[in-house]
Computed example of a mutant assay.
Amino acid sequence: MRVTLRLRALVAVPGTGPVTLDVPAGRMAALVAPPRIGTAVARVLVGLAPPRSGRILVGERDVTDLPPPRRQMGYVPAGGALLPQLTVRRNIEYGQRKRERVREMADDWAATVVERLELTPTLALLPHLLSDAQRFRVALARAAACLPEVLVVDLPSGMAGGGRLADLVPRLSPPDAPGVAVLVCTADPATLDEIPEQVDLLGEAVGR
């Protein structure tokens, strides 16, 4: 099985790690931490802040020092962080503009993700008109629209409005692709019940 995301002795923020973890394509793993720490670690993983030490690899590429657009990572911030003045369609398109991808492929794939996540009826709506669960799906679609190899999800309080992350993740990759490697930063018990591979950022690695 192809390993997509590798963390090597990563200390993302003071008081955590070092974490060594492999996440294969099409699989999920969780970094278990309180919300504030989970958010800080997620920002390090996607390149919005530097780590204290260690390395982050995507496939065979060391992306530790690369800016976010060159990491081939999608990011779902806590709460989704949708732009309130933009419609659902434009929020998803905004994610595409932030990546270096072939435009025609990205457009076709974005339309597919919208359909798979059942967002077509919401495309003309502003975020405040959506349910919490719909906003989360829009944030997933925005992150997946650029065909990332890795998806980092900051999920401090679970999926508001119900649903299972494990049911949504398979919809985020083309059927002929190996799948996206998903790393979830969370302490939510319901979410952790879905994810066998876990690392406690304040303690020891655990697997279930």
Rank of each mutant, 00 (worst) to 15 (best):
L172K: 14
A124W: 09
G163S: 12
R142N: 15
S131Y: 13
D154Y: 06
D154A: 03
G161F: 01
R171L: 13
V153L: 10
A160E: 14
L130A: 03
M159E: 05
G162P: 13
C146E: 01
R137W: 06
P170I: 03
C146S: 15
L126K: 14
R142D: 08
L126R: 15
L155T: 05
M159R: 13
L147N: 07
P148H: 00
S131G: 07
A141M: 03
Q134R: 05
A166C: 13
R137Q: 13
F136S: 10
V152P: 01
Q134H: 02
V150Y: 07
D132G: 14
A124Q: 11
V150N: 06
A166N: 09
D132C: 08
P170L: 01
C146P: 03
P156I: 02
R135H: 03
L168E: 10
M159C: 03
R171V: 02
L165W: 01
V152R: 10
A124H: 14
V153M: 00
P174F: 10
A145K: 00
P174M: 11
R171M: 11
L123W: 02
P148E: 08
R164S: 11
S157H: 13
R164I: 10
P148Q: 07
P175Q: 01
A141P: 06
D154C: 11
G162K: 08
L155G: 03
A143S: 04
M159P: 05
P127L: 13
G163W: 10
L129T: 15
R137A: 02
C146W: 04
P174N: 12
E149H: 09
R142M: 11
A141I: 06
G162V: 04
V150I: 01
L168M: 14
L126Y: 15
C146M: 12
A139T: 02
R171P: 08
L140H: 00
F136A: 08
L125R: 13
V150W: 13
R171I: 00
V138F: 08
A143W: 02
Q134K: 12
H128C: 00
V152L: 02
P175L: 07
V153N: 02
F136N: 06
V152Q: 09
M159S: 07
L168A: 05
V169P: 05
A160H: 11
D132S: 12
D132F: 14
A133Q: 12
P174V: 12
C146K: 11
